[in-house]
Simulated scan of single mutants.
Amino acid sequence: MADLADGLRLAVTTFTVVPARPATLSRSAAAVAMATGPALGAALGALIAATAGALVVGGAPPLLAGTVAVTLSALLTRGLHLDGLADSVDALGSYRRGDAALAIMKKSDVGPFGVAALVLTLLAQAACLAALAAPLAGPGADSGGWWSLVVGGAVALAAGRLSATWRCRRGTAAARPGGLGALVAGTVGPVGLALSGALVLLIAVAAVPGRPWHGPLAVLVALTATAAAQRRLTRRIGGVTGDVLGAGIELTTTLTLAGLTLAP
């Protein structure tokens, strides 16, 4: 029970800015934190999507509403995952390996590759949320659009955290002895993977009314593409780091949102 409580507190402080009593750091607590990340992501995604919807109903242009929602997401996560994305892309763009690539990821500044990745990712997320929120605009708004928007947001952010859960499965090595990666890599067992994956896919089934396969397909494609990118990076640096997990979260979230916008 102590590990469960510490794991939940670690998940809250890792994935959100919500204040929580400091957790006792341990591998077992880390396993709980990584396995419960998708549930926290679903709650956060629903809140962010609902914010975009409320702004559109209030008369804001959908793209502005999507931009505000993405900004809120960055604030509620301290931009932690975005930082991981920028650092990871800079490392990939450098074509360096091992300690040299890790040194680039540890730098506080952001290079041109990282800046481009941040801009394109945030723009894509804002545009996708705008597309999902657009049916709520105007006097003839489709009230059913609320469902697709809120559930879609929940699915996207939950899928993003599921990529971190999967990347922390047993057998995964950390790239260096210290940091978040060393704490969480290889901690999540088959039960945690199964439960978190089932939760995300269950929500995804309901994301597109009348097309129960569309949401799960969007999630699976996003996770597969992210896993391929992460494998390339982890081979180059020798394992998992917190930056790798953050990059995977942002990439999976973006690709899932994009997949959901393709629904007719």
Rank of each mutant, 00 (worst) to 15 (best):
M1K: 14
T14R: 05
V18Q: 11
A23S: 14
T24V: 15
L25E: 15
S26G: 15
S28Q: 13
A30C: 13
V32N: 01
A35L: 06
A39M: 09
L40C: 00
A42T: 02
A42I: 01
A46I: 01
A46L: 04
L47M: 11
A50T: 09
V56W: 01
G58A: 12
V70P: 02
V70R: 04
L72Y: 07
L72M: 14
A74S: 13
L76P: 00
R78G: 04
L80M: 12
L80V: 07
L80R: 12
L82A: 08
G84F: 01
G84R: 01
L85I: 06
A91E: 02
A91G: 08
A91Y: 04
L92W: 06
S94P: 09
S94D: 10
Y95C: 12
Y95E: 12
R97H: 14
A100Q: 13
A100V: 13
A101M: 06
A103N: 13
A103H: 15
I104H: 01
K107D: 14
S108N: 13
V110A: 07
V110R: 05
P112W: 09
P112L: 12
G114S: 08
V115N: 08
A117W: 00
L118D: 01
L122H: 02
L123W: 10
L123N: 06
A127P: 06
C128G: 03
A134T: 06
L136A: 00
G138A: 09
G140A: 14
G140N: 15
D142R: 14
W147R: 10
S148Y: 02
L149V: 05
V150G: 01
G153M: 00
A156V: 00
A158Q: 02
A159I: 02
T165M: 07
R169E: 06
R169L: 08
R170V: 14
T172K: 11
A173W: 10
A175G: 07
P177T: 15
A182L: 08
A182H: 08
A182K: 07
T187P: 04
V188P: 02
G189P: 07
G189F: 08
P190Y: 07
V191W: 12
G192T: 08
A194C: 12
L195Q: 06
G197T: 12
L199W: 12
V200A: 05
V200E: 02
L202C: 14
A204L: 09
A204E: 04
A206G: 10
A207W: 00
A207H: 05
V208P: 01
G210H: 12
R211T: 13
R211K: 13
P212G: 10
P212Y: 12
W213S: 13
W213V: 14
G215T: 10
P216K: 11
L220V: 15
V221A: 13
A222L: 08
A222Y: 03
L223Q: 05
T224M: 11
A227G: 10
A229W: 10
R236T: 09
R236F: 05
R236W: 05
V240N: 03
V240Q: 09
T241P: 05
L245Y: 00
G246Y: 00
A247V: 03
L251T: 04
T252W: 01
T254F: 03
L255S: 01
A258P: 04
G259V: 04
P264H: 11
